[in-house]
Design a protein around this nucleic acid. Structure first.
Lengths: 261, 261
DNA sequence: ACGGCGATTACCATTGAACGGGAATCACGA
DNA sequence: TCGTGATTCCCGTTCAATGGTAATCGCCGT
C-alpha cells in the first residue's frame, strides 16, 4: 500500500500519529511522537511537516505539536456524532438536573461502548467513562442495553468471546448474560450494580433512531449506596424518548441496534 | 509531494475528502465524493477503500460513505477542543438558563471565529452560528472580543483587509473599528446589534487561559427587540470567569489572544 | 567557554506504492 | 430489453515517499 518497508500506507501511519495523542498526551515534541508511534525519525518529521501544512497538526511556540483546529473542525462539521450529541444534550441536562450524577450517552462501535457525551460532576463518584472513551459491552449498563437491542447473531458473537470479570458482580456466563439481555430488552432498561467499578451502579435505557433501531444508550452512573433504580428509570426513559423523537423516531416497537462495523 | 499529476500529497487529498463532508452532506456515494473533490474516479475509489480500512470513513448499508466513528474518536480524544468545551459547558448552561437564548463559545482561528460549542434554542432567533461553523471577526461580537484582546500587530493585519459590510450596522472603517476595539477591551464586553443579521444582537465577553491570554469568547445571541445589554453582560461575565477559572486562570489583568496560526 | 546529548534539519540514492486511463461488471429503473 | 451511472478490475508508468547517514541547532551542566 505504500512505499514503506513495513508495508504500511500513509493513511495507516496517519492514524498511528493521531493515535499517539490522547487525553494524557495532547501535546508532545516531534521526537517523542516518533518514539510513541515507532515510526522512523525522518519519516516522522516529514509527515509532521506535511500535516502542519494542512493544519491537521499545529505547532506550539515551544515547538511541540498537537492536533490541529482544522482537524477538529473538519470532523465536527461532517460527522454524524455532532448531530446526535446536539439532539441529546438538552435531554441529558434534564436528566442530569434531576439525578445529580454523571449522565452519559454511548453508542456501539467496534464491539465496545463508545461514549459520545457525558455531563455531570467529575469527582463525586468513581467513574471511568469519559468522552471518546471506550468500555466493554458486557460490563456496562450502556453496553448491555446496546447489546440487548442487537441482532441475536451479533449477541452470539460477543458472548462467545472471553469476557473479562472486573468485579464479582460482572456477568461473564453466556447463558446468564443471555437471560439478562432478554430481561433488559423486555423491561426497557439495564441496571448493573458495580459490574466494572464496585462502588457504582449504571442505569441505562435505549435511544431509538428513525428506523427504530437502538442508536445509542442514555445512562446515569450513581453511587451504589443510593441507587433508587425504580425512581430513576422513568426519568431516563423520558429523556431517551425525547432524544429519540429529536432524531426523528416515531414508532413504538422495539428495534435492533444499527451496527457500525 | 506525491505521485499525483496535480502534485498533491496524499494528506492534501485526504483533507479534500474530509472537506467534502459538511452538515448538509454528511453522507454520499463514492461517485459523488469524487465529483465534489474533483479527484479522478479511480483515485477516489482507491483512497476511499484505504480510509475504510482504517475506519476513518464508514460504509452504510446502501453503499454510501460517511466520516467514520474512528475519526471522531481519535480527534476527540487527542484534541484540546474537548477540554475547553467540557470546561465551558456547565457555565454556558448557567448563562443559557438565565438568558434563554442561544449561547455560544468561539475561538480565533485562521482569522475567523470558529464556534466550538453552542447551546440553546435553534429556532427562536435567526442565527447562523453553528458548531464548527465560521464567521468573520469584524462582524460578530465574539470576533470583536477576540480581536480586541489580540496583539496590535494582528489587529492591523485584519483591519487592513477588505471588510464585508453585511448590514448597515456592520463596521468596516478601520479607524472606527479601532476605536471600538479599544472600548471593548476596556469595558470587557462587545455588544453588536445586527452586524451580520439585522434582527439579532450579539453580546460577547472574553474567556482567559492560565497564561492570561483570551482563549475564547463566550457570547449570547438575542433578538434585537429585547437586548437588555446592561442586564446581560454581568451574567456573561460571571460565566466567563467561571470558565476561565476552570481552565486554570488565576490572574486579573487583561491579556492578549493566543494566536493559532 | 567547552563539551555532551537530544532534538531537529539537510541530503540523497533507491524503489515500489500510488497513479489514472480504460474497460468490464454490476445495479437499477425505464 | 436497454441504458445510464456507480463500482470494480487491470496494468504499465513514474516520481513521491522512504529512511539511512550526517550536519546543525539548542540547551544544560561543569
Amino acid at each position: 500500500m505504500a512505499n514503506s518497508d513495513s508495508g504500511e500506507s500513509i493513511i495507516a501511519r496517519f492514524v498511528r500519529i493521531l493515535s499517539a495523542f490522547d487525553d494524557r498526551h495532547q501535546t508532545m515534541s516531534v521526537a517523542e511522537l516518533g518514539r510513541r508511534t515507532g515510526l522512523p525519525v525522518t519519516t516522522t518529521y516529514r509527515m509532521v511537516n506535511e500535516l502542519l501544512l494542512e493544519r491537521l497538526l499545529e505547532r506550539e511556540p515551544g515547538g511541540e505539536v498537537h492536533i490541529g483546529t482544522r482537524m477538529w473542525e473538519l470532523v465536527s462539521r461532517g460527522s454524524k456524532m455532532v448531530g446526535l450529541r446536539e439532539a441529546a444534550l438538552p435531554f441529558m441536562e434534564d436528566v442530569q438536573s434531576v439525578v445529580q450524577h454523571a449522565t452519559t450517552l454511548g453508542i456501539l462501535d467496534s464491539d465496545e461502548v463508545l461514549y459520545i457525551e457525558r455531563i455531570g460532576t467529575h469527582s463525586t463518584v468513581v467513574d471511568i467513562s469519559k468522552i471518546a472513551g471506550r468500555l466493554p459491552l458486557h460490563a456496562t449498563s450502556s453496553g448491555l442495553i446496546l447489546l440487548a437491542h442487537s441482532p441475536a447473531a451479533y449477541q452470539d458473537v460477543i458472548l462467545a468471546r472471553p469476557l473479562t470479570k472486573y468485579t464479582d458482580t460482572t456477568l461473564t456466563e453466556p447463558a446468564v448474560l443471555r437471560r439478562h439481555l432478554a430481561d433488559i430488552r423486555q423491561r426497557g432498561f439495564a441496571a448493573m450494580p458495580g459490574v466494572i467499578v464496585p462502588e457504582t451502579t449504571g442505569i441505562a435505557v435505549p435511544v431509538f433512531g428513525p428506523d427504530n433501531t437502538a442508536v445509542a444508550a442514555l445512562s446515569v452512573i450513581v453511587p451504589r449506596t443510593e441507587e433508587h433504580t425504580a425512581a430513576r428509570v422513568p426519568v431516563l426513559m423520558a429523556g431517551a424518548r425525547g432524544v429519540s423523537r429529536a432524531l426523528g423516531w416515531r414508532g413504538e416497537l422495539k428495534g435492533t441496534v444499527r451496527q457500525s462495523q
